[in-house]
Design a protein around this nucleic acid. Sequence first.
DNA 1: CGCTTCACG
DNA 2: ACGTACGTGAAGCGA
Length: 468
Amino acid sequence: MSFLDIRHYKYLTSSIDRNLDFSAFMDFEHHYQVSENKHEYSIERSYFSYKESLVENTVDSSIQSIMDMESKLIPIFAQMERTGVYVDEKKLRDIGEDIARESKNKELEIYDLVGERFNINSAKQVQVILFEKLGIPVSKKIKTGYTVDNEALSLIGQKYEIANIILQYRTLEKLRSTYIDGLLRVINPHTKRIHTTYNQLGASTGRLSSESPNLQNIPSGSGYPARIKSCFCPESSEFSFLVADYSQVELRILASLSGDTSLIETFVRGEDIHTRTARFLFGEDATITSELRRIAKSVNFGVIYGITGFGLSKVINTSPAEATKYIDTFYAMYPGVRAYYQSILDGANKNGYVETFYGRRRYIPGVRDSNKMIRAGAEREAINMPIQGTAADIIKLAMLRISNFLKEGTYKSRMLLQVHDELVFEVHESEKDMMEKQIRSIMEGVFPGPLKLLVDIHTGANWSEAKG
DNA sequence: CGCTTCACG
DNA sequence: ACGTACGTGAAGCGA
Ligand SMILES: [Mg+2]
């Protein structure tokens, strides 16, 4: 029985119709009425997709191999979902009480500052308070008036403390509603484990997504985020958490795909890529402060997204002209990247799609649109997909190999979570050192070529401690 | 259910 | 003149 599903076929071969209506498809294309019975229907679905993709031989061989990989991954994701991850419920509840207390204080502080009570969770009501009652200048217009998002409130906060308090309140409420209450609601009351659902077909680049709950956006950082993450832990003290994450994976992939010699050289020498870019931007002899490195880091990441001078200027809080200068300097110092991007756009125009190193495709109709803005947006998608998608292919292949490795031995350790460039395991103490070596070797070995991928591995008593 | 906001890589 | 960084999912509001 093949796990292959027609939705996988459509996912890998088409830009549209991700939520394909299978019964309509079968009726229209094959004059076949699918079964009303749920079980028979699912068998029909598997069978016809198998036939469609393999027997008709209309699919490019690299797509066939991606499809083969996706097919083999289905039971692996299913296993991870079924295993779930243990959560210390009492600890999570206690953190929630701390957050609620602090949030309540912020709430009262806000009412006190503006002299009235209102719903701070309502962006509309915040607009009225700030822009009508207090007469604060507006910035960007949105459908419902003027934005009161983080960027706008941070700017306002330079003059009006109320905006800063609202931001602090929002941060606390986000943590409480999504990560305390939200997670408490989905802990299995018997096993105390949380079981996400991985969506293998949703993301246009080939990434996974995670829902109900989303375990791919658990907050990270110090303070409450670390405390929340520390609630994810092994059930038994015989186990530790092991977190393995690819280091700078997208920039390394950009280096490999573009073949840019100075980007490759930087990684091969083991230099810090953000510091290297900072010296290109601010001079070889400049003292690279953390602030300059931060700017360079934003430039490096921005390039992966096809950022404009305007966009970068918002991120690093400078003028568009200055930001444009940084981007131009980046391309001048890493000329292979510019040439590579041009080749991607040429390919997108010629073929209508872009592809990852492994041949996974994304169709980008917008690159031929007559509307300049649609086209610019499509070009950013086209530039980003081969990078983000290759990273997705790499970690998926690694997961397949790790899963096979775990199956071969009768190990107690288990793979629990995937967060795009990171895998989370619970490992038995007796297997810990061996697992670390094997997991690193498998993950680093996936991608060929002269530029090695590097994997950072940390272990600890919980997800927070194992983040290094 | 659309909009807004914000959490992650 | 306009809009402006890729990819996701979830929560609260308000109609
Ligand atoms: Mg990383």
